[in-house]
């Protein structure tokens, strides 16, 4: 069955509405571009099912309502028929929600585009990226406070969840886009070992994207004069894709120094 991915839809929008703590309403609208043409102008009606990847994830679909309609059709001199109907919503094994419908075309005709609007009541899937960041107090001697975490921690450590965008075919490189940022919410200073450790948990990380975690340090971190600071990932995947089944990942980091080559 032909599946239309996110590159074959336009005018897409998703509303996420909180109904209760356990139920979320998702309203997904868009225009799909199947470019479905009759293989022959022989008086027969041609029918094919199409699937649209809606780009949303859920643990369970509790209720759904679908509207589809014609958007862009072309026909040349003669009898014609177009239809987009029998639309249904399904939840895949990976928690991905899809729209399936039948397209019918008669005559020398093409159904280029159709509109869809899907209203779902779902049990939402929660995602999380968590981990820790350690450094030697020589780099930034941050004293532990008796109440909560030090206020300066937020300005000095930023955790960025970045989406990795591969290069076009035949090209090198690629790019990245920050999809979520967060800060540390725990802090400990082990005086006996001279080690500082901050922990983070970031919720609401997008599903279905190739992501990685980056740690950005502030100017309070100081490296010895001949060295420069670097952040090394010590555990966890360097890149990952979250799904409702695998909705959490842990990545740990170490802020350290590297001696500049002479």
């Amino acid at each position: 069955m032909p599946t239309l991915n996110k590159n074959q839809v336009t005018s897409t929008s998703v509303l996420q509405v909180d109904i209760t703590s356990a139920q979320t309403m998702l309203i997904i609208s868009g225009i799909a571009i199947p470019e479905y043409a009759t293989p022959a102008n022989d008086g027969n009606t041609y029918l094919t099912p199409f699937t649209v990847d809606l780009g949303v994830y859920a643990l369970e679909v509790l209720q759904s309502s679908v509207t589809v309609g014609l958007c862009d059709i072309t026909s040349n001199n003669g009898a014609f028929q177009f239809s987009a109907d029998e639309a249904t919503v399904s939840l895949g094994g990976n928690g991905k929600v899809s729209l399936t419908l039948n397209l019918q075309v008669l005559g020398q005709s093409t159904l280029h585009r159709f509109s869809y609007q899907v209203v779902l009541l779902v049990k939402p899937a929660a995602s999380k990226v968590k981990g820790s960041i350690k450094w030697n107090q020589d780099l930034w001697d941050l004293a532990q406070t008796s109440q909560g975490i030090p206020s300066s921690l937020k300005n000095q450590l930023t955790i960025a969840i970045v989406k990795l965008i591969p290069p076009p075919p035949g090209e090198l490189g690629g790019s990245q886009e920050t999809v979520k940022t967060g800060h540390c919410d725990t802090f400990t200073h082990a005086a006996h070992s001279g080690t500082c450790e901050a922990g983070f948990e970031i919720d609401g990380v997008p599903f279905g994207e190739t992501l990685s975690v980056q740690v950005l340090t502030g100017s309070d971190f100081k490296a010895p004069s001949v060295d420069f600071l670097t952040v090394v990932q010590t555990s966890g995947p360097s890149s990952f894709e979250l799904t409702p089944e695998h909705s959490s990942v842990t990545c740990d980091f170490l802020i350290t120094t590297v001696t500049q080559p002479k």
Binding site: T10, S11, S29, I31, C71, D72, I73, T74, S75, N76, N77, G78, H112, R113, S115
Partner: peptide, 12 residues
């Protein structure tokens, strides 16, 4: 009988 192209392309 007409040749036609009817096209509502996008919601801006």
């Amino acid at each position: 009988e007409l040749n036609f192209d009817f096209d509502q392309t996008q919601v801006n």
